[in-house]
């Protein structure tokens, strides 16, 4: 069963490299929308990374945090979209 551990150790750097590239776009992004889009796409991948980590580190509760993270990122998108369009947050 060590194939799981060895193969995931090769995949973790790929995930981290992708996160770095997303952060570069988030920093460089000319407009607010670019930054929010980069953070949005990156954080869905962080949620996937959490699930992969929960198997790699054998911490089952980590998968539940991935669900919450996915929900929060959707909320971020909707807040930013609502703010950009009508300049109010609907509180």
């Amino acid at each position: 069963m060590d194939i799981v551990v060895t193969s995931i150790t090769f995949l973790i750097p790929i995930f981290l490299l992708a996160f770095i590239l997303y952060i570069i776009r988030a920093i460089k992004g000319p407009t607010i929308s670019d930054q929010v889009l980069a953070i949005d796409a990156m954080t869905y991948d962080v949620a996937a990374f959490l699930v992969v980590l929960s198997i790699y580190l054998r911490i089952p509760i980590l998968t539940a945090t991935a669900i919450v993270l996915a929900l929060w990122i959707y909320a971020l998108d909707i807040y930013i979209a609502k703010y950009l369009e009508k300049r109010e947050l609907g509180e």
Binding site: L37, D40, A70, Y74, L84
Partner: peptide, 17 residues
């Protein structure tokens, strides 16, 4: 959740932009 929320969120962002 990711399958449902991701397209909806990015679409809302694109519409607002």
């Amino acid at each position: 959740l990711v399958l449902i929320l991701a397209p909806a969120g990015s679409h809302a962002l694109a519409r607002a932009t």
